[in-house]
Amino acid sequence: MQPVATTFFFYFLALVTVISGVLVITRRNPVHSALALILALLGQAGLYLMLYAPFVAGVQIILYAGGIMVLFLFVIMLVSIERAQKEEQFNNMWVVGVLAALVLGGLFTGVYVKGRDLFAGREIALPEQSNTQQIAVLLYGNYMFAFEIASLLLLVAIIGAVVMAKKRI
C-alpha cells in the first residue's frame, strides 16, 4: 500500500515532538513536564514509523512511554508539588546552556544545508515487512559482541542499584 500524505504527517509529528519538548522544559509542575515528555516520545515513535522502522517504534512505545516514564511518574508523584514550585532553580548555568544550544543549532543548520552531500547515495530502501527480521540479523549476527557487552553493562547497573539500595543482601 502506498503511503498517504507523507509530508503532512511528518510536519504534524515534528510539531507535536517540538512543542511538547518545549513544554517539558517550561512547565513548573514536574508531573506536567513528564506528561509532555511522554507526548514527545510518542511523536518520535510516529517518526520512526514514517522511516519504515515499525519495530523501533513499537519498542520506543513499550520501553520509554510505557515503562520508563511510568517509573518517572511513580517517583515524581511522591514529590510535594507546592513546595517544588516555590523553590528557586539553583543551577545558574545559562552561559553554558546558550553555548551548547548554539553549537547544537550550528550542527543542525550545517547538516540541513550540506546534508545532501554528506549522505549522498545512502538511500537504502528498507522494506517495512522484514524490518524486525533485519534488526534481529544485525543484532544477533554482525553486532553480537557489542550487543552482549551492552547487556552486560546493564546487568552491572542493575546489580549496582540493588547493592546501593539494600543494606543487607
Binding site: 511522554i38 519498542v59 512505545i61 513499550i62 512511554a65 510505557g66 511510568v70 511518574l73 508523584m77
Partner: peptide, 11 residues
Amino acid sequence: GVSSLSVLGVV
C-alpha cells in the same frame, strides 16, 4: 505497547 500506555491514564 499500547495497552501498557493505559497505566499512564490510571496514574
